[in-house]
Design a protein around this nucleic acid. Structure first.
Lengths: 137, 137
DNA sequence: CAGGATCCAGTGTGATACTG
DNA sequence: CAGTATCACACTGGATCCTG
């Protein structure tokens, strides 16, 4: 496990961080996951994901296209039809991504519990008798 | 995989998305990775990571602590000494995280190349003869 | 249907200065 | 050493309106 001899290369950190924040944005993982089931149209994705604005879905897809993770296929029909599909590179991303997603799903309860504990402790030590942090909500 | 019968549960998406953006922020993955090598002190982390502001490192560590992923141990000496260490839960996160990090490291060249191609194409069709997008940088 | 353009609010991030 | 406090700012993301 990372043995002990893990060599930290600062230069790589920048690059990796950048990619990480790409896939760490609000919709990328969701979109890639959905596309893992096969090609989808724009509004199809929009419906399935739910809660994503038109703008953000467009931006997310553009970004993924730019990074060579999805292809965008336009059928010049009327009304227009656009299919999005994972590239081979995109499909390889699927595996690590579902790994993280699985972890998140498996551990979100523990995390939620940890937060409750932490917040409670924070409130106690904050200033006993005074307002404290959580504003009632 | 994801077989075809992947069931999309919108409720889970919210929760997963939230966790994803937690670990998808700018420093979390880096910090967890470093801590994977064993406990570290505040400024030790700061130095090793490089480029992280004091504020952001503090915020990141607080967040991880709140989520039960790292422990914070204060030694009441002078000068003060604080050790950060992964919890058991934190260590389980290490595996999926290095999976993604490995993917990022392995494919950043392809991504960079894809961007060049995409941007070049975008520039050509943008307005032939005019400035175009990349602002010189 | 797909998505471009605009405007606006929230917040994530950083620089700096100060403290126990 | 290990923070906290404050400010300033860019960027993310959403709502809305418009077009081919």
């Amino acid at each position: 496990m990372l043995s002990r001899g893990y060599t930290h290369v600062p230069e790589e950190c920048g690059a990796i961080s950048e990619i990480l924040s790409r896939i760490g944005d609000k919709w990328t993982v969701l979109v890639v996951s959905m596309l893992g089931n096969g090609p989808m149209r724009f509004n199809e994705l929009r419906r399935e994901i739910g809660g994503v604005s038109q703008r953000m879905l467009t931006l997310t897809l553009r970004g993924l296209e730019r990074d060579g993770l999805v292809t965008r296929t336009v059928y010049p029909t009327v009304p227009p039809r656009v299919d999005y599909e994972l590239t081979e590179l995109g499909k390889t991303l699927l595996e690590p991504i579902v790994g993280v997603a699985a972890w998140a799903r498996a551990n979100r309860a523990k995390i939620a519990a940890a937060r409750v504990v932490y917040d409670k402790a924070a409130n106690r030590e904050a200033k006993p008798g005074v307002v404290a942090r959580t504003p009632a909500a």
